[in-house]
Write a protein that binds this DNA or RNA. Structure first.
Lengths: 201, 201
DNA sequence: CGTAAAATCACTATTTATAGGGATAGCTTT
DNA sequence: AAAGCTATCCCTATAAATAGTGATTTTACG
């Protein structure tokens, strides 16, 4: 099972509903998008600096009166692509500052293809190893992890040391980009590595 | 495990993104909402007639120029409550025709409580069969836990101390008998406390 | 045969989670 | 009014998980 690293997206949008909608739509796509949302521009530089973001989607209303912010962001994070998320009419001169524009009336496919096009423009640093597959042993560990066992229990069950389990888990996290146990659990279910019945409820 | 009948909602909204957002938000609520979406008014009477709908959520832009539709719907389906979903300013006289108004800038709680208030007005057919295992607050915690957040993050999100979160988690574990995060995640999914989309992968 | 990937194990330091003990205040129900 | 439940907060001590680095041995493949 090939696992692509998710595309990291920072979404700045005051309407929770719209943020939720976009997130939900993107989650339905085959390509994996990981969307983080914030509702204002505060601390945005801080947030951008501590992560490997691919796309910034922003409501242009938030920056239309201080285009400097936009420019300074583009300068500091030159690989970051900025997309405007518009509800209604916006001045072309403002929209022109963005790499792309998506509308709330766009279809799911339209939105996704616009984003994908932007991403494919990027130098593929990590997408060459994106056909990553969990190894057999990693799958074993994930399976047991997702059924609710601790590292120690997994180690005992597989007759290996806990260090090895931890090692495998590091690799799993790195390959899938999923850090949380809940996320990995759902992943295991979706990937049919386990069935929900086998989980310790 | 008690199961309440879901609230049937018909959503008429041309923006897929907004429809998706609202659906996603409602799915995160404890109360179960089942949302069907259509993007225009065609065949709406037909659709309404073949289902037991509780709420109709509609973009007022769709009917502002023919209020008759609205009136005729209210006449034919007298138990149906109509909610306006607004993005921007709308004439008060138009909004007054609705039982309630929600904005895309409303918080999740605001939206949910508006809908719940409308529903509770209705004669309760069979809503008292719930020996709900988890309390409301415990459900909040479970919801966030299952999306992959740590105790600390949950505390911040709910504006309570980490001790309280731990306390709730103790109770959740005791009530459900489920100790592992993966087990609780699956539990939350099965109980429709969360949807798999909302999990941080 | 050489190499690359996988699997195994190890150590340190830090952060999180769990177990178990309490406490208080605000409700609802009896 | 008393009993119960919920929500909130606090403490200690221990267990578990994670991040970062590194090393050795198998195994598969050209």
């Amino acid at each position: 099972m090939p696992v692509n690293k998710p595309i990291q997206i920072l979404l700045i949008e005051p309407s929770l509903l719209i943020a939720e909608g976009l997130t939900s739509l993107l989650n339905k796509q085959q390509m994996r998008f990981q969307v983080s949302t914030t509702d204002n521009l505060d601390n945005i530089e801080l947030q951008l600096s501590k992560g490997n973001w691919h796309l910034l989607i922003i409501n242009p209303a938030l920056i239309q009166y201080n285009p400097k912010t936009m420019q300074s962001l583009k300068n500091r994070f030159d690989k970051l692509q900025c997309i405007a998320l518009v509800y209604s009419y916006f001045d072309e001169r403002i929209l022109a500052k963005f790499d792309e524009t998506i509308s709330i009336y766009d279809t799911q496919n339209t939105i996704a293809s616009k984003l994908e096009k932007l991403i494919s423009k990027q130098p593929k640093e990590s997408s060459n190893n994106s056909q990553e597959v969990l190894s057999e042993r990693e799958t074993d560990v994930l399976k047991l992890l997702a059924t609710g066992l601790s590292n120690k229990e997994i180690a005992d069950k597989l007759h290996i040391s806990i260090h090895t389990v931890i090692s495998h888990r590091k690799n799993i996290t790195q390959k899938t980009g999923i850090k949380s146990v809940s996320g990995l659990t759902i992943y295991a279910v979706v990937q049919k590595i386990i069935s929900t019945e086998s989980i310790q409820l």
